Amino acid sequence: MALPDLDSSVGHSFGLEFDGVLIKQITEISGLKFEQEVIELKQNTNDGKYMIKKLPGRPKAGEVTLTRGLTSDNSFEKWVKDSRFGKMSTARKGGAIVVYDYEGAAIKRYKLVNAWPKSLEIGALKAGDTSVCTEKVVITYESLEVE
């Protein structure tokens, strides 16, 4: 069910979907953005005044960081291993970050084109600590599309 125009979405539930596999245990997503280069056109007007006009350039590739609690699921490790050893034909994937509403229906999909994991980081491990152990994966992508 779509949200009314005056309501805003609450980002309480989201997941990562690659190759038909959905990972819903994601706790944080950061760095998801569209960006493109800016071209400066410098010229003189008809009356001789100097003017700078800004034009849209090529889209830029991006990176997104996903954090989740440490689990027995090793899908991130397998994916990183493929890219680490140069198996880019299997490491480079298309997928999406999906945002869900309160009822579990997908309300927005951010499609990542030719994405692969750049790094995997395990959170700090401290003896006697009661915080949740986490893992962060940084995914680089060539373009981002909204579906």
Rank of each mutant, 00 (worst) to 15 (best):
P4H: 11
D5I: 12
D7F: 14
V10C: 12
V10N: 06
F14Q: 06
G15P: 04
G15R: 07
G15W: 02
G20L: 09
V21I: 00
I23A: 00
I23E: 07
Q25K: 09
E28S: 03
I29E: 02
G31P: 01
G31V: 07
L32R: 03
F34M: 03
E35F: 02
E35D: 08
E37F: 00
I39N: 13
E40S: 09
L41Q: 04
K42M: 07
K42W: 00
Q43W: 05
N44H: 12
N46T: 06
N46K: 10
N46C: 09
K49F: 10
K53H: 11
K53Q: 08
K54D: 11
K54R: 12
L55I: 03
G57S: 06
G57M: 07
P59K: 03
A61P: 00
G62M: 01
E63L: 05
E63G: 03
T67A: 06
T67H: 00
G69H: 03
T71V: 09
T71Q: 11
S72G: 03
S72F: 02
D73C: 01
N74A: 03
S75D: 05
E77A: 08
E77L: 10
E77R: 03
E77C: 07
V80K: 02
K81N: 08
S83E: 04
S83Q: 01
S83Y: 12
R84T: 11
F85G: 02
G86D: 10
G86E: 06
K87C: 04
K87N: 15
M88P: 10
G94W: 15
G94Q: 15
V98S: 12
Y100T: 06
Y102A: 14
Y102R: 14
Y102I: 06
E103Q: 02
G104A: 07
R109S: 13
K111M: 13
K111Y: 15
L112G: 05
V113S: 13
N114R: 10
N114C: 11
A115H: 08
P117A: 02
P117L: 05
K118A: 14
S119C: 11
S119K: 02
L120P: 12
I122T: 13
L125P: 02
G128Y: 14
D129R: 13
C133Y: 10
E135N: 11
V137H: 09
S143N: 14
S143H: 15
L144V: 11
L144K: 06
E145Q: 09
V146P: 10
V146E: 12
